[in-house]
């Protein structure tokens, strides 16, 4: 479930990045790397788990599924927070600088 949610987040981020290409003023590319990196890592985790559990892997308990779904959503939220922090620090459009200048002037 966590893997699925992260893969969907990665696909959506990549579509948004492609639409804003080549300028990418919102730095959506960062979000793509975050989610794709995590997706590849969780894919490996899933493959090892499948090798151990075989077909049982596809029949998780409801409680585990809910917990994994919450984790997936929390991971997506954390990815967005990391992206927001990077966006604010790099401030590619200079908007934060402009706001700060206006305040001090």
């Amino acid at each position: 479930m966590t893997l699925l949610i992260t893969v969907f987040a990665a696909i959506i981020a990549t579509i948004v990045w492609y639409k804003s290409c080549p300028k990418d003023e919102m730095k959506v590319g960062t979000l793509c790397w975050l989610y794709w990196g995590a997706s590849v890592m969780w894919l490996v985790d899933a493959l090892f788990e499948y090798a151990e559990l075989k077909e049982e892997y596809f029949m998780p308990a409801l409680e585990d599924m809910i917990n994994d779904a919450f984790l997936g959503l929390a991971v997506v939220a954390l990815g967005l927070i990391i992206w927001l922090v990077i966006l604010m620090i790099r401030d590619p459009q200079g908007k934060i600088k402009a706001v700060l200048k206006r305040k001090t002037a």
């Binding site: 975050l34 794709w36 990196g37 590849v40 990391i82």
Partner: peptide, 20 residues
């Protein structure tokens, strides 16, 4: 840059999973 972004990003989110 692509490799480091993927590695750092994936590791950060996986670290969160381990904390969870």
């Amino acid at each position: 840059h692509w490799l480091t972004n993927m590695l750092w990003g994936g590791s950060a989110l996986l670290a969160f999973e381990h904390i969870w």
